[in-house]
Amino acid sequence: MNKFGESIVPDENRIEQIITEGQRYMDSHVPQRTPRLVLLVQQLRYISPLLWVTQLLALVLLVINVSTRAVGVAAAREILFAAAPLISLFAVPELFKDICRDMSELENVCKNSGSRILTMRLIIVGGINISVLTLLTAVVSGSWGVSFAALILYALVPFNCLCILNLLAFRLFRIRSRSGAAALSVLSAAAVLYLPAQTGVLAKISERLWGGIFIATLLILIWQVLRILRAAKSQGVLLWNSK
């Protein structure tokens, strides 16, 4: 009896009955869409260690270069221009790892669409690469007292070029294997590094022109990414069979 003179003692059987019914409902409950954050964290968990290794390697090599080379804007630009391809070496292979690992069919029939998963990977891979590039530029800028703004384009332009090349080649040659993806990345990185160095074109390009190249490559990259996302939304295993 409580202070009001009542005797309201719950019946354990009724409680059990409610719990059982409620849990049955929970079993049958159709899942809502996975929250974006949960999907992001999940994809982040399964990002290839190789991606992280290349970021770390680039950072280490950069630090070594910065501490051993003579200070100068030109040297700073060269270092960043060389670091960018290394950082982005596994960007596109990681993006399309479901195709390279034969997981795309399994992933693309899930409630969370292939395009959603791809978007998460774009955010993660792009975010990691751009963050590390920014960090490297900041390190060089800080260590050598060179303006950050003067340097960042020399990191972002080769990054854009490499991504554009990789995305284009993935579609053109319909890369489906891990070895193909890796080979493509290495070749693209070599092309981005080697050709400008051989032709000496780097030294001839003004800062203003670099700015223009950055904007142009950025627009092309955005266009490619949007195209891929649109293809992922429509029927078909991404670009590999779409007509």
Binding site: E6, I8, P10, I15, I18, I19, G22, Q23, M26
Partner: peptide
Amino acid sequence: LIKQGDKQAFDTLVRRHYPNILAFCCR
């Protein structure tokens, strides 16, 4: 936890609030 499908959490929640709600309905 219930939103994540934890049935035990539902069990705990019901047991915690059942007496109060029953009392209210009775009254």
